[in-house]
Nucleic acid binder design. Structure first.
Lengths: 127, 127
DNA sequence: TTAGGTGCAAAACCTTTGCCATCCC
DNA sequence: GGGATGGCAAAGGTTTTGCACCTAA
């Protein structure tokens, strides 16, 4: 049975307290402020556990490093092609899309992911 | 200036001749049939060159390994959560979405990626 | 008490890179 | 000829894992 350890709580609190979509590495650095000896292994293991419990989500759209977020309602993402930042996006989710496509194709569809790409405001003004 | 080498041609032909979305590793194994000594380094370098030339696309939707495809019109993808297979998808692309969202948000949007997740027909019948 | 968790370090995995020989243009 | 490319091997970056020691329940 899963335990509630201080390290796991810490990682969860970090994700709760942030509106960005941090990488494992960033979470690790943050967690070290409370647990100087915490290891990347622990971070990854706990991120996996929290995912399995459904408390957090791994954004596995694109890119090299995984990014994580505290679970929220269905929403889409925007990724800046210049700085890599990921922004939540409140374009309304099309609830019926999956069912429509399922009927048309015979595939069993669980969900869909939509990611916009472009330049965030900050990077627009710099370039 | 870019040269036309036999290895590069080979890799391109492999991607042209296939309707799947192979990983670099699969392409490597395939290319070895023609060039037994070809190396992964060459495969990756050429995949990068071909991308820069705009002849192929790297699907950087999700997952650990990159997948590549010969360039085609905008389309969406379906990924089987059981076997990992990626299938092209002819759900009509919403051409106006990017502009609408751009006007609403002030972000500069270049494109959007849409990926459906679920079970392909083969995996549905097995489970 | 004890199964589950942590830290540490090493391994695994995918991708990139340095070097030098080779090949196109 | 000479810069672009290939093969090889080593390095890089991210994630996973084995193991011995802890710790929450």
């Amino acid at each position: 049975m899963k335990r509630r350890t201080r390290q796991r709580e810490c990682i969860l609190e970090i994700l709760k307290g942030v509106r960005t979509h941090p990488t494992a590495d960033w979470i690790y650095e943050e967690a070290r402020k409370s647990f100087p000896n915490i290891s990347m292994g622990t971070v990854y293991r706990n991120l996996k556990v929290l995912q399995q419990e459904g408390v957090i989500t791994e954004l596995d759209l694109s890119g090299t490093m995984s990014r994580f977020e505290f679970k929220q309602d269905r929403h889409y993402h925007f990724r800046c092609e210049n700085c890599g930042r990921v922004i939540d996006f409140n374009e309304p989710v099309d609830k019926g899309l999956d069912r429509r496509v399922e009927r048309r194709t015979g595939l069993k569809i669980n969900c869909h992911l939509l990611e916009f790409r472009g330049l965030c405001k900050k990077c627009q003004s710099v370039n």
